[in-house]
């Protein structure tokens, strides 16, 4: 019991500690692909450190919603990380790690962030909230259907059950359902993590930003919490991509050896995903806002095919 809880806590610390690094790696890769030198991969940590030492400027028009939002946003993501199998499927709280719960915990954070965007009364925040909620309305079903496809094929929505099931079957690379669902979820992941071609994480140009627009009124420590939260959410989605579809190498117990191997394999998978994301970001231009639903509709159809593929290919 203590061991299982310790494993959960270790996984949370690992995710929270690793999240800025993944963001840094993506940034560095993008810079190199654009033939810039770019900041080092540890820059996001330095940014967080800097923000922690700055005073916070809060608009006088805001209410308590603005104050509590960073806590709720980060807490809901940390709660999601506690229930997710990262390097081992043997955590204490994994029994509650349901894909529906995880997606709705993301939604809880987003709900408050969108409210905070409206709270200061500035049109930028309102515009960003409005766009975020519209995009996420289409992205959420697109993200859930591929996970449902996996859940249905394993007979449970519990992540541990899905991961163990896929791992045991051992034919992940051969099944069309998994591949179609993976591609579908990857597209939805681009929208959920706010990356090009859906949103641009580097911009502060008012008319193009979505996620950054909601943070516009934040500064200092609350901004640090929200920035860490955004990185963590990205890593959580990468973890879902890496573990649900290709659980190769994940440990099933507490053995230090297997945990170590699992950690290395997990990090390799996540860094690989980050590199792929950087390549995609560099090779595409940002889409027009109202083309995004078409992209997500494509993802939706892919996962539908994935579900149907079960009957066509008996996979």
């Amino acid at each position: 019991m203590v061991k299982a809880l310790a494993l959960n806590v270790f996984q949370v610390v690992l995710l929270a500690g690793l999240a800025p690094l993944v963001t840094g790696i993506i940034k560095k890769t993008k810079a190199l692909l654009q033939t810039r030198r770019g900041p080092g991969v540890f820059q996001p940590y330095l940014d967080l450190y800097k923000l922690l030492h700055k005073e916070s400027v809060v608009s006088e028009h805001t209410s308590w919603i603005f104050v509590v939002t960073p806590y709720i946003y980060l807490a809901s993501l940390l709660a999601a990380s506690l229930m997710l199998p990262v390097i081992s499927t043997a955590g204490l709280l994994n029994f509650s790690g349901d894909v529906i719960l995880i997606i709705y915990l993301f939604a809880l954070g987003r709900f408050f962030l969108a409210l905070a965007g409206l709270d200061a009364g500035s049109a930028f925040g309102g515009m960003a909230s409005s766009r975020e909620m519209a995009i996420s309305a289409v992205a959420e079903p697109a993200a859930m259907l591929p996970l449902f496809a996996m859940a249905v094929s394993q007979g449970s929505t519990n992540l541990t059950a899905v991961i163990t099931g896929v791992d045991k079957a051992g034919q992940a690379l051969l099944s069309p359902t998994i591949w179609l669902a993976f591609i579908a979820f990857f597209i939805a992941a681009i929208a959920e993590t706010g990356r090009i071609p859906v949103d641009n994480p580097d911009t502060h140009l008012e008319l193009t930003m979505i996620h950054e627009g909601m943070l516009l009124e934040y500064s200092g420590r609350p901004l640090a919490l929200l920035t860490l939260g955004a990185s963590l959410k990205q890593l959580l989605i990468f973890t879902l991509l890496a573990n649900v579809f290709f659980p190769l190498g994940i440990s099933t117990g507490y053995g230090l050896g297997s945990l170590g191997t699992a950690l290395l394999v997990y990090m390799a998978k996540v860094v690989l995903l980050g590199l792929v994301m950087a390549v995609i970001e560099t090779s595409f231009a940002k889409m027009r806002l109202f083309k995004v639903p078409d992209l997500l509709l494509g993802s939706f159809l892919l996962s539908l095919l994935g579900i149907a593929a079960k009957f066509v290919f008996r996979g």
């Binding site: 209410s63 709270d119 009364g121 992205a139």
Partner: peptide, 22 residues
């Protein structure tokens, strides 16, 4: 899922416009 996400959007609007800002 789409219904839930749209409902969340609707209530961000309902609460945000009525109760927040100026």
């Amino acid at each position: 899922a789409l219904t839930g996400a749209l409902a969340a959007a609707c209530f961000v609007k309902a609460f945000g416009i009525q109760f927040l800002a100026m």
